[in-house]
């Protein structure tokens, strides 16, 4: 039996906002019977694009119903801008957590919300453009990449828990593994519109910066007799110290901005600012 929190049980037994709004401003219909869970979200906006009412209809297990109920409670009263910031982790947190095998229920909630917002704005959803990786559950590489990056997924099992990909015949496991490796190599994740800024922990950031320094930047600088050391990372500020010929080079500032910063922005985070550390 699943270890559901009291909040999950409470939302499952007494779901809020069940139903469907007639002539809604936004409608999101995600999942399918075949997949075992489906969610239809409708919302109504006021003149300031603030969500005044939200309703859901859900086919699925207790956590799918609870996630849907939680989602409608969370978005009511928010502007569309604010609502679009809600991640699947936020939905799970609101419920006091979900069993890891059930995280895909919170992802379903976020997807329904995105679909409903996209429906209101009249735009296409990014995941629809991706290439199908898991044929059993119809999950695209875009969705998998996104889940990997947003929730820091490390294993195929994690990916299955969050997206269902790999949970059927298992033939796509290798492809999922490739996507996992790709992200851990620090390659730039495909830009996904509509998603909020990707949150990275400081340690993650430092590790990624170090990797890029070691693999690419240091070898290039060494060719010219120079070198670089990472001193500190403070928010978006990356403090480095230039060594060897670089330390006395007149063009050192150009190197720092045009080369080092550019590389780090491309491969780690596009808001990084590289500065020279001076004692």
């Amino acid at each position: 039996m699943w270890d559901y929190t009291d909040k999950v049980k409470e939302h499952f037994l007494n779901p809020r906002n069940v139903g469907e709004i007639e002539k809604p401003d936004g409608l999101g219909d995600v999942g399918s019977l075949a997949c075992g869970d489906a969610l239809k979200l409708t919302f109504k906006l006021d003149d300031n694009e603030r969500i005044v009412d939200a309703r859901f209809k859900t086919f699925g297990c207790a956590s799918a119903i609870a996630s849907s109920s939680a989602l409608t409670e969370m978005i009511k009263g928010l502007t569309l801008e604010e609502a679009s910031e809600i991640s699947n982790e936020d939905i799970a947190d609101y419920l006091g957590g979900l069993p890891k095998e059930k995280m895909h229920c919170s992802v379903l909630g976020r997807e329904a919300l995105e679909a409903a917002i996209a429906n209101y704005r009249g735009v296409e959803l990014p995941q629809a453009e991706g290439e199908i990786v898991c044929e059993c559950f119809g999950v695209t590489d875009v969705e998998i990449r996104r889940a990997i990056s947003e929730s820091n997924l490390r294993t195929v099992e994690d990916v299955t828990n969050f997206t269902k990909a790999g949970g059927g015949c298992g033939k796509c496991e290798e492809k999922i593994l490739e996507l996992l490796n790709e992200s851990s190599r620090g390659e730039k994740l495909q830009a996904i519109p509509m998603s909020g800024p990707r949150r990275m922990t400081n340690i993650e950031k430092i590790k990624k910066i170090e990797k890029v320094l070691e693999r690419e930047i240091k070898p290039t600088l060494k060719k010219d007799g120079g070198n670089i050391e990472l001193i500190d990372v403070d928010g978006d500020y990356v403090l480095v110290s230039l060594r060897g010929t670089c330390a006395s080079c007149a063009k050192s500032q150009t190197t720092l901005k045009e080369y080092v910063e550019k590389k780090l922005r491309e491969q780690v985070l596009d808001t990084l600012i590289v500065e020279e550390y001076r004692q």
Binding site: F12, L13, L33, G60, A62, I65
Partner: peptide, 14 residues
């Protein structure tokens, strides 16, 4: 049809 087993079981469990 149209409903999911776990949800049924948890209601029965009550």
């Amino acid at each position: 049809e149209y409903v999911e087993g776990e949800a049924i079981l948890l209601h029965l469990d009550r």
